[in-house]
């Protein structure tokens, strides 16, 4: 045994390619380009500006949630309740407007606030009671969906005023309106994650929470903020979704957690925490949406695409973890 440990380790192979080419995001972007070309070759309707912009429209609801989810997974947490918060918020939007008679702008504010409150409840129990995020958000996955079903009694609300449909259906400067919202959110999230103390502390927490605590980082406050943010963005996503599909139903957002987590993990954010970028998540989102669209255009039905997304989720985690293990020499 002791003789074994004295054998010098071989020198790591000299890098022949620049480091940024080996980054997960870069590799993913290359795959994305190849996929674009292949799908474009298979179907002439795919690689048109109209189609791509429309796909951007469709990805916004998931994308808005994927940004805070990136923060959460970087800290080593998870939020499975996002899809249920979307449903809960959609129902609240419809009900506060139609049943309580709020003016629609007030109803929207109320919805966003409710989303933030739902996320805050997750965060407060996770940080104060120390319930693991996985279990807490499974419980609220049931709870928020249950509230949506209970409040709505399976009735839908439709007939919103015309101006409300702008964000979900109209274009602004030739680009779908909600895509602007997503773009702004992406830029803000990337700057926060990369350039602020708050953003950097997320990595510290994900790498070693105890060390982060002893370094004087306000770990609990940071976590509380990101789970609240996650709920808020789910509320925003609900408003965009209702505006796009013009109705509210209690099953809205069901299964969003799969798309969101798949996009984040595919984008190179480690499910074990400590690693990840917003750009990776953006490429992951684009991959997932193009996969769905490409498959649909080649005649694969919607139900089969979730098979692909599930497989992609497992495989990308497998590849990422085996790469990481090799890098660490385990």
């Amino acid at each position: 045994m002791s003789a074994m440990s004295e054998i010098p380790l071989p020198h790591p192979a000299k890098r022949v390619v620049p480091w940024w080419l080996l980054r997960h995001e870069t590799m993913l972007a290359v795959i994305l380009l190849i996929a674009l070309v292949v799908l474009g070759g298979l179907n002439s309707r795919f690689l048109t500006l109209d189609n791509l912009l429309n796909q951007g429209r469709l990805t916004t609801e998931v994308g808005l949630i994927a940004l805070p989810m990136t923060f959460i997974i970087i800290t080593g947490g998870i939020d499975l309740s996002v899809g249920s918060i979307v449903g809960f918020c959609a129902i609240l939007l419809g009900y506060s407007w139609k049943v309580f008679g709020f003016p629609l702008p007030l109803a929207i504010c109320f919805t966003l606030l409710a989303g933030a409150a739902a996320g805050f409840l997750n965060g407060i129990v996770i940080t104060r009671v120390k319930v693991p995020p996985l279990i807490m958000t499974i419980a609220t996955l049931a709870l928020y969906r249950g509230l949506a079903e209970g409040i709505s009694q399976a009735r839908s609300v439709r007939g919103y005023p015309e101006w409300f449909y702008f964000i979900g259906q109209e274009n602004l400067f030739g680009v779908p309106a909600q895509l602007w919202l997503l773009l702004i959110a992406i830029v803000v999230a990337a700057i926060v994650l990369d350039r602020t103390t708050f953003g950097r502390s997320l990595y510290a927490i994900g790498n070693n929470e105890t060390a982060a605590r002893f370094s004087g980082l306000p770990v609990d406050r940071v976590k509380l903020i990101i789970y609240t943010l996650s709920g808020f963005m789910a509320g925003l996503s609900a408003c965009v979704l209702v505006s796009r599909v013009t109705t509210t139903r209690s099953d809205m957002g069901m299964g969003y957690e799969l798309d969101v987590i798949a996009a984040v993990v595919l984008g190179g954010t480690s499910i074990f925490g400590g690693v990840g970028t917003i750009w990776g998540t953006v490429v992951g989102l684009a991959m997932i949406q193009l996969l769905k669209n490409g498959l649909a255009l080649t005649g694969v039905k919607g139900d089969a695409t979730i098979v692909v997304i599930g497989t992609v989720l497992i495989l990308s985690t497998l590849v990422a973890s085996s790469l990481q293990r090799r890098r660490e020499g385990v």
């Binding site: 998870i78 499975l80 996985l134 299964g255 957690e257 799969l258 987590i261 798949a262 993990v265 499910i271 074990f272 039905k301 139900d303 089969a304 695409t305 979730i306 098979v307 692909v308 997304i309 599930g310 497989t311 989720l313 497992i314 985690t317 497998l318 973890s321």
Partner: peptide, 21 residues
């Protein structure tokens, strides 16, 4: 050593989508 939540979430969608299609 992939976390159970990732594996079973992926499998959930594979089984669900597979069954319906």
């Amino acid at each position: 050593r992939i976390p159970a939540i990732v594996v079973t979430l992926g499998m959930l969608s594979i089984l669900k989508g597979g069954l319906i299609s």
